[in-house]
Simulated assay, not measured.
Amino acid sequence: MTSTGPDVAASIAASMIEIPAGWIRLVDEGSRRRWPVDLEPYALAARPVTRANLAGLTGTWPDGPGEPDAPATELSWLDALALCNTLSVTAGLRPCYLIGDDRDGLTATWDRTADGYRLPTEAEWEYACRAGDPGDRYGELDEIAWHRGNSGGTPRPVATRAPNAWGLSDLIGNVWEWCWDLFDPDVCGPYRVFRGGGWNDQPRALRASCRRKSHPTFRMDDLGFRLARSRPGGSSAVVGE
């Protein structure tokens, strides 16, 4: 039996993990640009949004491969924003996003005063992924991640690999995850960041610092998303960018 929207909202609310305030330096390996980010406390879902989550929320099984508890894929960045808003309304929260009618990704805005669900910023994503670990990843690859060498060629059910020190699963491997941020607007225009590596990737992509990008309308079978929420009065402040 498929869960209902309120069931999904309650399940996701229970899965949110409180992330403490902190600081991280992001690095773009291509340009060698570095920039620091101060972070206020926020909450992040322990696992990516699943196919079953979306079926319960929307009443329709999503496209994409995998079992019901595998991450939902074939979702554009704009799809992810719209689904964040849908979940927020279902949960009785104020939606974070205003999405323009032209659907080009350039008119989507984030109301940072809203208390609803949203995508993490890439600084929030990497800070949570590392959970204080300075290495390439937070554990041995086969123990923490589904990747080309062990996935069997498909997304796998979430939370079936070891979590990091803060209890977050699948940040490395299984599917890439959309973030809010533009990748490099001067060079790539509206392209948005995604992080984490996927079920068909080699180890080089499966690192906390690895940045990739795509157009906000693109959909791929190894790209999904994870939910975040701001805490009252909190916001991410970029320093020196």
Rank of each mutant, 00 (worst) to 15 (best):
L141K: 10
D101N: 04
A14C: 00
G198M: 10
G22A: 07
D201F: 04
W110M: 11
P203G: 06
G116V: 08
G189S: 04
W178I: 00
M1W: 15
S3C: 00
R219C: 14
V175I: 14
D115C: 02
N150H: 02
C179Q: 02
C210T: 10
W77I: 01
R51V: 07
R156Q: 15
D102M: 07
A208R: 09
T86C: 06
V89G: 06
G30W: 13
A43V: 03
G100Y: 10
R118P: 12
Y42W: 15
A237M: 11
P6A: 05
N85I: 04
S31Y: 11
P48E: 10
A45C: 13
R156S: 12
E126W: 05
T90C: 13
L223N: 09
V239Y: 04
A162Q: 14
A9Q: 04
P155L: 06
E124M: 04
E74F: 15
C129G: 10
A10T: 15
M16L: 14
R156M: 13
M16A: 00
P120Q: 07
P41R: 01
T154I: 09
P216V: 00
T50A: 03
A52N: 08
D79G: 03
R219W: 05
P36V: 09
T2V: 15
L182N: 11
R103E: 12
P163S: 09
W35N: 12
L168M: 08
A80L: 00
V158T: 12
G233V: 03
P134M: 04
H215Y: 13
W110S: 07
L87E: 11
P232S: 00
A131P: 09
R103A: 10
C179T: 13
W35P: 11
E140S: 06
L75N: 09
T121E: 04
A14V: 01
P36T: 12
G59V: 09
V8N: 08
W178D: 01
K213Q: 15
R219D: 07
E124W: 09
T73R: 04
I17K: 14
P190I: 06
L83F: 05
G153P: 08
W146H: 06
G139P: 09
I24Y: 08
A145P: 01
A145L: 05
A91R: 04
T73C: 10
A123T: 08
S88T: 11
R161M: 11
D101V: 08
L75S: 06
V158D: 04
P48W: 12
W178N: 03
R130L: 14
A14W: 03
W35Q: 13
L227N: 13
A165T: 02
T154E: 10
P62N: 03
P185F: 02
S76C: 00
A205P: 00
P48Q: 10
S11G: 12
L119I: 07
S3A: 09
G30D: 13
L26Q: 08
F183Q: 05
R161P: 10
F183Y: 15
E124K: 04
P62E: 07
A43F: 01
L26P: 01
P41D: 02
W180R: 03
G105N: 07
P95L: 05
I12T: 06
G132Y: 05
D111A: 08
R51A: 14
E18C: 01
T2D: 14
D142E: 14
M220E: 15
L171I: 05
G139A: 03
S15I: 00
R226P: 01
I17Q: 14
G198V: 07
E74A: 12
